[in-house]
Design a protein around this nucleic acid. Sequence first.
DNA 1: TAAAACGTTGGAGTGCACTCGAAGCAAGTA
DNA 2: TACTTGCTTCGAGTGCACTCCAACGTTTTA
Lengths: 140, 140
Amino acid sequence: MSAIASTSTAASTSGTRPHYTISEVAALTGLTAHTLRWYERIGLMPHVDRSHTGQRRFSERDLGWLAFVGKLRLTGMPVADMVRYAELVREGDHTRDERRELLEATRRDVLTRITELQDTLAVLDIKISHYGTVCGGTPT
Amino acid sequence: MSAIASTSTAASTSGTRPHYTISEVAALTGLTAHTLRWYERIGLMPHVDRSHTGQRRFSERDLGWLAFVGKLRLTGMPVADMVRYAELVREGDHTRDERRELLEATRRDVLTRITELQDTLAVLDIKISHYGTVCGGTPT
DNA sequence: TAAAACGTTGGAGTGCACTCGAAGCAAGTA
DNA sequence: TACTTGCTTCGAGTGCACTCCAACGTTTTA
């Protein structure tokens, strides 16, 4: 539970930009430390800084990336696709078009998903309104 | 691919209501025969009729139920919860309140999900618009 | 300084929702 | 009748996304 305002880290430990320990990032993102390490292993994190003893130190930029990944995760995008996107980012500027494509495809998926959910909502409302009436009928 | 209009079954084989074979239902719902059998095994199907030789014969009502289950599945509801709902239906009228509760909770989840997706959509739109501009910046 | 808390690694395990395979009947077609 | 297709059951296998473990090193607190 040692959040951001804890004793040492975060803001200004050694003169450079803020660094977060893995447990701080876990608290901030809701992901577990296990998951964060796993993200790095599979290439979903773009290479996290280490302290002189080899411990991870996450930057603000890393947090931003994780926030974005969190959004992608909400869309239901498979992890493999997110990794693909991360690779494209690493490969540099000549992949911009492909990245935009990928994002636009995702955008379309999200739109579809929203429509599906709204349909479902309509069905649920009908069902629920049936339960409102006292008479029996055909309960499914 | 033998859809509904195939040779024998469906409409009026033996005088009673329409009966669909498992492969017809698979074609209609997009589920596999395996999955349909599995649904029955775990109690997610309310007991499918059998032919005199023991083969499944699905009714219109079964199709309606599967359509509803499909909607619930779209919400991301765990199968165990759907089974719970199916059990409540089987238990009869005194579970109406609990069923309505369950449906209303699901409704709330769906609403939350839609909001999340709309947030994500906003983020994607921002990203995509960045890719529209030619200047580099900080591509993440 | 000692203890507690936190970090590292590789690899194995978990839970979910299917998904498939094998062996064996049964029904319809050439 | 022979063949093809489809059905049955049970149990094992798959793919995904984590999730945890063991063994050990580091850092912080009392």
